[in-house]
Design a binder for these strands. Sequence first.
DNA 1: TGGGGTACTTACCAATTCGTAAGTGTTGAG
DNA 2: CTCAACACTTACGAATTGGTAAGTACCCCA
Lengths: 126, 126
Amino acid sequence: MTKAPRTGPYICGIDAALDVVSGKWKGLILWELDEHGVRRFAELRRGLPGVSEKMLTQHLREMEADGLVRREVHAEVPPRVEYSLTAHGRTLNAALAPLGAWGVDRIRRERSDLVEHRDAAVLPRP
Amino acid sequence: MTKAPRTGPYICGIDAALDVVSGKWKGLILWELDEHGVRRFAELRRGLPGVSEKMLTQHLREMEADGLVRREVHAEVPPRVEYSLTAHGRTLNAALAPLGAWGVDRIRRERSDLVEHRDAAVLPRP
DNA sequence: TGGGGTACTTACCAATTCGTAAGTGTTGAG
DNA sequence: CTCAACACTTACGAATTGGTAAGTACCCCA
């Protein structure tokens, strides 16, 4: 089933913002769409390694309902659906930038603190 | 039980940052501690209306393990435990500020869009 | 003697979130 | 004729997350 529509008002701005961003892939979806401008479903799928079709559609629908993502269906065959950010979605991405910077900094700290830690490389995207 | 230690590396900074902030009350805890500097357990409890003791301790322990919160126990009776932000925690709060501003803006939009909407007032804290 | 305040912990349960796998219907390529 | 690609939807179940309630141990105040 889809996401519960959140009962009760928000307590603060962070609360409201985290409500639309939390979801296993939403941050990445935002990033992909901001990077490429327009993406088709299968392109997003390939861009987010490990995502399932179910979660991708579910997240995209929620983000559309939240006014972050625009969904354009072209009545063709095979079907073509294009996703892009709305103006509101782009402002969210901008607001997330400092948090992303904080995150990469944190990753850096972790990797220098921990000695026993030689796994896969991290792509330092914002 | 407590939180699973997250398998696999982070994909990007947002990913890493959201990992430490997501949790029903963590944003509010950060805000409370930043606002007051130092808070005792019961003070935090009173500051977060609706939180249970279990969730509060659980979140505080996780945030301590993540290096965001400092916990000082004073060997007195009755017990006194003081919580405050570390430097790292304060930088996180700074990085969250734009997101908070985005959130209040979003709340404002919502409330002017929706007509049938006359419930409790929202405290517009950052 | 009884109640409230301090800071928790534990057990159990409910709700939410995520993953896996399969099915849908059409088209073009081999 | 068969299979892949497109963009999904549905059913089921596991994992994670959060809520409720009770118990702990000690003290102060009335």
